[in-house]
Design a protein around this nucleic acid. Structure first.
Length: 232
DNA sequence: TTCCCGCCTT
DNA sequence: AAGGCCGGAA
């Protein structure tokens, strides 16, 4: 019954889990906040998103009706720290408009849909691409789908798990067809990869001496790429 | 100056 | 495939 489980992927998971511990994702008070956070965090440091979310609460904009009736300027003013505020204000408004028009503003009704049609519907909305849609399905609707981000692809490359091209659907299929279908496992796995990607294996500093995956990694990067690469 | 839990349009 | 979006901490 566990035939499909790939030992290498579980070894990576436990290496990360033993190092970082449970990540308690998604960091939000409710599903609506989670969804806005997923849109706001696109290509932005999470710390900035926290400020934007706090601003939305302060201005009573953390519900679909208030967002739909608010001016673009009011939303932009609140989410400014999250970058790309002109587009993101439109995206957030469009999602709330859709939620109200189609589901009477009730997320539970949207989340009742099956994964496949829910995903298609989310992808049809502006500003929601594959990663954001899958994050909403996993961390909002609590349905089993694996979230792939830039860190996941970096991990796949450095550990040589797949040949090129390491595109979204291939990476997602690889994880989902080699892991048990489990919401908790998918939740922690993605969150752990995120912690690894933004705390350990960063752009210019690989920190291999601290990396919990150093033994599984095929590309031995130096701790200080800049300092050692072609130097002297 | 770099880098952040992307997406959309050419 | 590449550029635009575009604030803030390190």
């Amino acid at each position: 019954m566990d035939r499909k489980v790939n030992k290498k992927l579980m070894d990576i998971y436990f290496s990360l889990y033993n190092y970082f511990g449970p990540r308690h994702w998604w960091p939000s008070k409710n599903d609506f906040e989670m969804i806005l956070g997923a849109i706001l965090t696109q290509n932005v440091a999470w710390k900035n998103v926290e400020v934007a979310i706090e601003n939305l609460y302060k201005n009573n904009l953390m519900d679909p009706v208030s967002i739909c009736s608010a001016s673009d300027e009011a939303i932009i003013d609140a989410i400014r720290p999250a970058r790309f505020f002109n587009q993101k204000a439109k995206y957030i408004k469009a999602f709330c408009r859709h939620l109200i028009d189609c589901y009477d503003g009730k997320l539970g009704r949207l989340f009742d849909k099956d994964i496949s049609s829910l995903r298609d519907e989310l992808l049809s909305l502006p500003g929601i691409g594959e990663e954001t849609a899958d994050a909403i399905i996993l961390y909002g609707a609590k349905k089993p789908i694996f979230v792939v981000d830039a860190y996941t692809r970096k991990l796949v490359r450095l550990l040589n798990l797949l040949d090129e091209p390491v595109n979204y659907s291939r990476v997602q299929l690889y994880f989902m067809s080699n892991l048990e279908t489990d919401v908790y496992l998918y939740n922690e796995y993605h969150a752990l990869i995120d912690a690894w990607g933004n705390r350990i294996c960063k752009g210019k500093t690989a920190n291999c001496s601290q990396c919990p995956l150093v033994n599984q990694c095929t590309v031995k990067r130096d701790d200080k790429i800049e300092a050692s690469a072609g130097g002297s």
